[in-house]
Design a protein around this nucleic acid. Sequence first.
RNA 1: GUGGCCGUAGCUCAAUCGGUUAGAGCACCGGAUUGUGGUUCCGGGGGUUGCGGGUUCAAUUCCCGUCGGUCACCCCA
Length: 448
Amino acid sequence: MSHKALPGFRDFYPAEYAVRAHITDTWRRVVRRFGFMEYDGPPLEPLELYTQKSGEEIVGQLYNFEDKGGRAVALRPEMTPTFARMVAARAQALRKPVRWFAVPQLFRYERQQKGRLREHFQLNVDIVGETDVLADAELLSIAIDICRALGLTRADFFARVSDRRLLNALLAHLQIDEAKWPAVYAVLDKLERQPREVSLDKLREAGLSDATCDAVLGFGALQTVDAIRAVYGASAEVSAHLDTFAEYAAHLDALGVGEYLRLDLTIVRGLAYYTGIVFELFDAQGEFRAICGGGRYDRLLLGLGGVDLPALGFGMGDVVLGELLKARGKLEAVAAEGADVWLVPHEGTPVPHVLTVASCLRGADVSVEYVLNAEKLRTRKSGAQLKDAQKAGARYALVFRESHTAELVPLIESALAPADRLLVDTSGWRADAPDAAALAPLLTALGR
RNA sequence: GUGGCCGUAGCUCAAUCGGUUAGAGCACCGGAUUGUGGUUCCGGGGGUUGCGGGUUCAAUUCCCGUCGGUCACCCCA
């Protein structure tokens, strides 16, 4: 084979597409429960949209090129700049808070590895125009609800949550110079993944005293509001942010997802733009990358769109999530669906009549299939045609007994069998004049 | 971009120390059988061993390059 998909890109055969649809359908279903509305933007954007805030370095990670009109363009690597532009353009007119979501396909030019391809689908959920911590709680509960709707439980995943303002207050309380914060963030972000000595060296390199280094390295062990208060409660600022966090936790409890919450000061989420509560969802066994991540970014819209509105949001990709669902056996029932009904003619059934019946059923929104070869349709034994139907995954077969009388036969377990043998007289059916009354018993049996 | 490991039917794998027409299961196609289907049986198609070069009488096997995969680093929307 000379033509394969490009590195990091996927061909979705029906079996894989069924998994993708299962995930994206669940995203949409759950997010709508929270009253969010779907939007979308162009997959191709001006390169400048991404370089103006992130700098030229980001170009190395983008799929970018010059179009025939000489414009520098890029396939979107993230949705936020597009979202910011759209919100900013109508900021005055939009009813606040804005509660929107999107399911864009995103692209990045990077060497692929586990959980990271060059293309993926990512749910983006954002709220604009609300500073209250209830909005933060609502946002996290959406992400958790999605995982639960996909069959995952507390034994499978949990949320690690931190707060940038709390962290900043802690660093200020430790009298760490603000210029050193980024370096400290970087160390915290990797606290779990790199040896303590390496973290210590990096903190010393940044110019922190030994006592301060110890304090920072101890952040990972502070996993409750009370634990932090016991050590740093003397700082009024720290104390105030802890109160906010406690309120956040109480909201999550009331929303029924409190058990998933774990305070974790090592969650940093990149080094830029987040300004408040930040979170990431992880699988409980620690095998995979973060399932999703997000938080509050109150100043981002000002920078990207020129509009000063508080905002928060998260992104959840299909790749890691899919890997986790597969590993936990949550995709076994997910498969491409066959037709609702497969028509199996009797020896005396005229082929045109089979087609007419198919047309009438399709007119009633029932998917119908049959052997797509007139000669075989007429001559192939009905037993063999039933086998064809079974192999194709059809839910029911409509097997003709005589030329114009057929019986509905369930083929798969989930297809409910009619109470009795359902015999249908199709002699009066006309493709150009559907008879609703004649179809009714059949549709009822099919669950329509 | 840097480094490690790996490339044999659609998939999972086999092929002695380098040795003759590269095999099997699943899947697919055809047929038989099963009183109208999930069973069973018979048969069939499908591989330039990723690609290119080298060593050798002989390369799936050894060497180099390249492409692809994978893992880690980097980065993380």
